[in-house]
Design a protein around this nucleic acid. Structure first.
Length: 258
DNA sequence: GACCAGGCCGAGC
DNA sequence: GCTCGGCATGGT
């Protein structure tokens, strides 16, 4: 919840969060290895929670990758158990359009504003149609800045092409990436985030400023390396686990562990 | 009061 | 094809 994957959850206390899953508000509590969910209406089922948090995936191969290399081992030691949330595709599209040249704290704040002023009764994140119907000026007032037209144009397009995202899910990786990048405000990095977090394409390896720094430092002897070179190395080294490795490196880098 | 943040876009070579 | 400014805004 705190590793920059989702922006709609608020931390209430140790292991306690409020947010929404499947468009329904929910309270989550994680204590001593036990996860519980509570809601006013229907809470997500145990099965749904296991799926949402990807709990049934065997992370053995990931731990082997991370643990067998001294450069990545600290990230595993610190954050063993960290998993990729299987979030809604539209929410990943919107969240990572907002993320461009922004910081996580402020993305959360913008997300909360959109939910409060454009979402439904449960303060869930607004649908494409609701954002499409908003005025760009209103979006700017919520702090989106120059991202306002991007989010709105993408919302307009998706509200009129409701099969667009589900077709991406079925496409081969490179085609899927091209189609995600065709949306306004989405370039290579945001596309990789959408593929990874919204479509569970675990080969995707988003390269932002944090990942670029840590990858240069760990694997390029501190020398310059383009995001494209970094992506190629990650694909070669970690294959289908690259996205998971990225999350460990990103979070460890941001928290000063590596 | 700089500098930075999970970058993208359009213009100009 | 590539490089390079411009872009809104709040946190630090």
């Amino acid at each position: 919840m705190d590793s920059g994957q989702v922006f709609g959850f608020r931390r209430l206390g140790r292991g306690r969060y409020e947010g929404s899953i499947d468009g329904r508000p929910v309270h989550l509590e994680h204590v001593r290895g036990s996860l519980t969910a509570a809601a006013n209406g229907a809470a997500p089922s145990a099965r749904r929670l296991r799926e949402y948090f990807d709990l049934d995936r065997d992370l053995g191969p990931l731990y082997e990758f991370l643990g067998s290399d001294g450069r990545t081992r600290p990230a595993l030691r610190a954050y063993r158990g960290l998993r990729l949330i299987r979030q809604d595709a539209w929410e990943s599209v919107a969240g990572f359009i907002l993320s461009a040249n922004n910081n996580i704290k402020r993305i959360r704040s913008i997300w909360a504003g959109l939910s409060r002023y454009l979402g439904g009764d449960g303060l869930e994140f607004p649908s494409p149609a609701r954002i499409a119907a908003a005025h760009e000026r209103a979006l700017r007032q919520l702090g989106l800045g120059y991202r306002a037209p991007y989010l709105q144009r993408t919302a307009c397009f998706l509200s009129r092409n409701d099969a667009y995202l589900s077709e991406i899910r079925k496409a081969p990786l490179e085609e899927a990436r091209t189609r995600v990048m065709a949306l306004p405000g989405i370039g290579p990095k945001v596309a990789d985030c959408v593929l990874l977090y919204g479509f569970q394409r675990y080969e995707a390896f988003p390269v932002d400023v944090w990942i670029l720094r840590v990858m240069r430092s760990l694997f390029f002897k501190g020398r310059r390396a383009t995001p494209e070179k970094v992506r190629e190395l990650a694909a070669r080294k970690w294959g289908r686990w690259a996205g998971y490795v990225q999350q460990y490196l990103f979070h460890a880098s941001r928290t000063g562990v590596i």
